[in-house]
Design a protein around this nucleic acid. Structure first.
Lengths: 117, 117
DNA sequence: TTCGATGTTCGACGAACTTCGAATAATGTG
DNA sequence: CACATTATTCGAAGTTCGTCGAACATCGAA
């Protein structure tokens, strides 16, 4: 299963410092950048240069910081940005962070669904 | 003396994650909030609930992250926000962070110049 | 020069974070 | 039912961070 006790905090209960701390990590910022198109992604799609358990950990941090939302479906787990809620809580912040150049974020891509044509 | 090898980085060399990490600390965010009026403050003026050495450490972090600028004058040391430069590097970001409600920042005040009337 | 004020630097400590591999749990398939 | 897939959790190791007190360095004044 995935994220059984996934508690998604009410954004009103999340302090700015919590969000900043979550986004200060290069990998997590990279994940947010990837998710910034609003699409919902599956764990397996994410191509990050870390072990699965590490990825799981970082996604948990993002979740408990109120930045992402997790949805289970069978054995799969989907993530997406809580963009609208973040916009209400911290107006303009997300846009600001995503537009920044020279972000030190780790590049997180998408795995190729099928290697051949 | 104060901040002998105080190297202030060019903001173009500062990554977003560096700034976020610096501002993710409650005390440092509190310092930035205090300095956000643009005024130049002296070390001694700052009333923060930490030891001197700790305060010095945090101010050093802010300095090396490009957020503040330090100026020596005799034995005194003055700090101020690099607001304009930050605005150029990360447009709107500072304003966004300062406007946020429910920031988890430590309150940093100013010491009374003279205790009695 | 001696003293006082102001910051910085130096260990040192515990807490928190990052990372991994292995073990675990849940679902879907043969 | 047995097995593969998917994601979480656990335990451990190593690193970084925040904090402090004490020692040090510098400038200004007496």
């Amino acid at each position: 299963m995935a994220a059984k006790d996934a508690h998604h905090p009410d954004l009103d209960d999340v302090a700015l410092t919590t969000v900043l701390a979550a986004l200060a990590d290069p990998l997590r910022l990279g994940l947010v950048r990837l998710l910034s198109d609003g699409a919902e992604r599956q764990w397996g799609e994410l191509d990050a240069p870390v072990a699965k358990s590490t990825l799981s950990h970082h996604l948990k941090v993002l979740r408990s910081s109120g930045i992402t939302r997790t949805r289970d479906e069978g054995t799969r787990c989907y993530v997406h940005l809580r963009a609208e809620e973040l916009e209400k809580r911290f107006p303009g912040l997300l846009r600001n962070l995503l537009d920044a150049e020279g972000h030190g974020a780790t590049t997180v891509g998408l795995k190729q669904p099928r290697p051949s044509a």
